[in-house]
Amino acid sequence: MKIELPEKLYYSIGEVAKAFDVNASLIRFWEKEFPQIQPKKNKKGNRFFTPQDIQNFKLIYHLVKERGYTLEGARTALDENKNLENEVQLVFRLEKIKEELLLLKSTLNDFESE
């Protein structure tokens, strides 16, 4: 999974949904299900997510969508495992390295075929 978000203080629900390739309704649902996600709300009720919320979304997404945890299992894992964030960060870094290597391989293949 590739998360592309610029570095900002706050992200709209639309930006978060697009970055994770999910519906905004799933973002709102996870917000209710996981106390780790605490978006700020303006007077209109619009949600604004912090970089820490994005980190928590990454953890939840990894557990639920990639590892197949139930919501209850993901909540338990987040509560009990302090090293989980490091593990997920490593997975994301390795995925980024893999993308870069595949791009390099494609570029080399194009170069060889000329």
Rank of each mutant, 00 (worst) to 15 (best):
L63S: 07
L103F: 14
Y11M: 11
Y61W: 13
K105S: 11
I13H: 07
N56R: 09
R75S: 06
D110V: 00
G68W: 03
K98M: 12
R28G: 01
A19T: 09
E33V: 01
L26K: 14
Q38L: 08
E87Q: 14
I54T: 05
A17E: 03
L94E: 13
Y69T: 06
K40N: 04
G68H: 04
K43R: 13
Q36G: 05
Q55L: 01
N56F: 12
H62G: 02
E7M: 11
Q36I: 09
E33G: 02
D79T: 12
K96T: 12
E85T: 05
F92R: 06
L84H: 04
L5W: 13
S113C: 00
E112V: 06
T70C: 04
A24I: 10
L108C: 08
L5H: 07
F92G: 02
N23F: 06
E66H: 02
Q89Y: 03
I27F: 03
V16K: 00
R75T: 03
F34W: 07
L84Y: 03
H62I: 02
Q52D: 14
N83S: 12
Y69D: 09
V16S: 03
E72V: 08
I3E: 04
L102R: 11
N46R: 11
V88N: 07
E72H: 02
K8L: 15
N109M: 11
A77L: 08
V16F: 02
P51C: 06
E85P: 00
N46S: 04
Q38K: 15
N23K: 15
R75Q: 15
I13A: 12
N42M: 03
N42T: 10
R28Y: 05
K65F: 11
K82M: 09
I97Y: 14
M1H: 06
K98I: 12
K58P: 04
N81L: 03
P6C: 06
L5I: 13
E4L: 10
N23Y: 08
K82S: 13
R75C: 04
A19Q: 05
E95Y: 08
E33Q: 15
I3N: 05
S25V: 14
A17L: 06
